[in-house]
Design a protein around this nucleic acid. Structure first.
Length: 315
DNA sequence: AATCGTTCCTGATAGC
DNA sequence: TGCTATCAGGAACGAT
């Protein structure tokens, strides 16, 4: 499940591997896989590749990859028309959702679905879930693997994509240097309502990039119960939460993310955060602080793991 | 306006 | 063994 650390890992990989590469061809297996949005002489064009396949193909072929960035859990691939990579005229936005991940390397299509990998994805010799491939001018491919087909891909002019609520509504980046503890406390206090802190942490409009794995990890580190009402947290608790958030996310980026499920980096390798995790998917096992058994509870259809002894609802 | 439930999808697993 | 039912989950969307 790609969250901030996993997406950052992919983005860092791509910056080392595909900047300056030209897209020479594209392949995908579902008609509606990509939504395109850009202003044209005829006005605003918006639709999926079901109806705009030719326009999409014509527009994207020949573009050069100018820059790759992350915003929340979104991967932003800036594409340039000109030789020197500026101006960046088009933008490809990829949200990997639950099981999506980008692979970059050289491989062969075995049949319509399965591929046998020649170079690149190391741990995945065969991948049955490639939905989208960009063919690059050095013979490499940039592929989207996505078992459950939830991933979102948007392509359009930089201006139009940057205006979308998908990007505009996203809250501050938790690892930004300018996002200091005071700003964090102010942000959480503004995120009013009686919602549980677990839900608030995962709300992309409050803070960007935190999902189920890292909200559990952060709350354990800060010794805060996931059901605690966000507006009832003390200043000290908010300070702990901020410190835990920064520490956990930085550590997870360093360890290249968590691969308990489908997530892999651009070469198909697992991240290793799972080896040091505190609570995520450790229900029934002992808490590393107090030896109590980690519990699993449901919040709005989502699982939350925590230690019932050291993350107490009431003191 | 805020919050809840539903939906998308496939593979793993539980239960009979 | 082999079938069916349930579950996992990010976030857009519709309903309340």
């Amino acid at each position: 499940m790609p969250e901030l650390p996993e997406v950052q890992t992919i983005v860092d990989d791509l910056n080392k591997k595909i900047i300056g590469r030209r897209i020479i061809d594209v392949w995908f297996d579902a008609p509606k896989i990509i939504t395109i949005i850009f202003a044209d002489k005829r006005g605003l064009i918006r639709g999926t590749t079901r109806n705009f396949k030719k326009i999409f193909n014509d527009k994207i072929k020949g573009l050069k990859i100018a820059d790759v960035k992350r915003r929340g859990k979104n991967i932003l691939i800036y594409l340039a028309k000109t030789q020197n990579l500026t101006p960046k005229t088009y933008l490809l936005l990829i949200h990997q959702k639950l099981t999506g991940h980008l692979l970059c390397g050289k491989w062969q299509m075995a049949n319509r679905k399965a591929i046998s990998l020649i170079k690149g994805p190391l741990e995945e010799k065969v991948n049955n879930y490639i939905r989208l491939i960009f063919y690059l001018d050095n013979g490499w491919q940039l592929g989207l693997s996505d078992l459950r087909k939830f991933a979102k891909v948007l392509f359009g002019s930089k201006e139009e994509i940057e205006k979308l609520p998908d990007l505009v509504k996203i809250g501050p980046e938790p690892l930004d240097k300018s996002f200091k503890v005071g700003k964090f406390i102010e942000t959480l206090r503004q995120a009013q309502g009686k919602r549980k802190i677990k839900q608030v942490l995962m709300d992309q409009e409050v803070i960007a990039g935190i999902g189920n794995i890292y909200s559990d990890e952060i709350l354990w580190q800060a010794k805060i119960h996931p059901f605690k009402k966000a507006n009832e947290l003390t200043t000290n608790e908010l300070k702990s939460l901020y410190a835990a958030m920064r520490q956990i996310l930085k550590k997870a980026v360093k360890l290249r993310g968590t691969s308990t499920s489908d997530y892999r980096d651009t070469e198909g390798r697992s991240g290793v955060y799972a080896k040091v995790r505190y609570v995520y998917q450790r229900e029934g096992e002992k808490c590393y602080r107090c030896q109590a058994l980690i519990k699993r509870v449901k919040i709005g259809g989502r699982s939350s793991r925590f230690c019932p002894a050291c993350q107490r609802l009431k003191p």
